[in-house]
């Protein structure tokens, strides 16, 4: 397999994900707006958020200037070479950065130098998942730093929270993390949770939970009940959009689990901001689907913005 044909669809995945939000997120933000009194600050804030997404989509500019840590989850069959996928993703990231769909958002952690093309040690981050049957799917998450900074990992028991090694303890951790996040992570957020695993597996799974559609249900009845309850009751914290107060503090809670060793009981929590950027590119036969819709042969060009500039 030659990496070249993969590059344009991947650039389009990056453009599409950076310059808009998925339908489930837009619906949740519109519902949150409609729960607020017309003309109130939270109502106006949600209305501006939706207007921002509309303008970003129209002009193909990033929804948020923090175009985030680029996390790719790739599922691929035996006909696909993972090396070529890695090459193609790196090329696509360089091209999307050149086109300003991405900010040069990657810094050498020791020298402090900004990397102009977003390709560096561990960036973009690619999770490769081989599968036995043919197929190719790339899911992309763009996770901004503000919301990543309010993620948290708890080791239970935690006497400060009164959290034991059970679902009541997990619930206390989630409430604590959402309270501590306040507006710092650009509320209303969506919370991805992993019970168990080691410290790495826990955070990986907590992020993968964030790919679930907001309205889906957890197949585990106990976890589903907890998700449903917290999605409603956490709004009682009153933190609201941007931490300014309001009826919606959270858009969703998604909880998974991973096996653990007897000595460890981690609860890993990833917080995703309202600018919840996730996208999926899938190949079916000889056609590409982007978030379930056929990929346009020529992606829309960025319209020029009404800006006056000087050198």
């Amino acid at each position: 397999m030659d990496p070249q044909p993969l590059v344009p669809p991947l650039v389009e995945l990056l453009r599409h994900t950076s310059c808009g939000l998925a339908k489930d997120v837009l619906e949740a933000l519109a519902a949150a707006r409609d729960r607020e009194e017309a003309g109130s600050r939270p109502h106006n804030t949600f209305a501006l958020m939706l207007e921002n997404v509309r303008r970003a989509r129209e002009a193909s500019v990033p929804v948020c200037q923090d175009t985030g840590t680029l996390i790719f989850y790739v599922d691929y069959g035996p006909e696909v070479s993972p090396f070529e996928v890695e090459d193609a993703i790196q090329q696509a990231v360089r091209e999307a950065t050149r086109l300003s769909y991405l900010r040069p958002n990657t810094v050498d952690s020791v020298s402090g130098k900004s990397l102009s093309d977003n390709v560096g040690l561990g960036s973009p981050h690619i999770h490769l998942h081989p599968q036995r049957s043919p197929g190719f799917r790339v899911r992309l998450m763009m996770k901004g730093g503000g919301c990543e900074n309010v993620g948290a990992q708890y080791a239970l028991p935690d006497s400060r929270l009164g959290a034991d090694r059970d679902l009541d303890g997990v619930r206390r951790c989630i409430i604590d993390a959402v309270h501590k996040a306040q507006g710092f992570g650009c509320a209303p957020g969506t919370v991805g949770v992993c019970i168990g695993g080691d410290r790495v597996i826990g955070y990986t799974e907590s992020k993968e939970q964030l790919f679930r559609p907001l309205q889906d249900r957890n197949p585990d009845a106990g976890l589903d009940a907890l998700e449903q309850e917290l999605t409603t009751s956490l709004n009682g914290l009153g933190i609201g959009p941007m931490g300014w107060g309001g009826k919606t503090t959270i858009l969703g809670v998604k909880i998974g689990q991973r096996a653990r060793v007897p000595a460890s009981f981690f609860v890993s929590i990833s917080y995703m901001c309202w600018a919840y950027r996730k996208g999926e590119l899938r190949r079916e036969g000889d056609r590409w689907l982007l978030d379930g819709e056929p990929l346009q042969p020529a992606p829309p060009q960025r319209s020029s913005l009404p800006l006056r500039v000087a050198s």
Partner: peptide, 16 residues
């Protein structure tokens, strides 16, 4: 408003 990059970017009229 965090994440309001398109709207706020359009409020920038000039880079001095």
């Amino acid at each position: 408003i965090g994440g309001l990059a398109a709207v706020l970017g359009q409020c920038v009229t000039r880079v001095l």
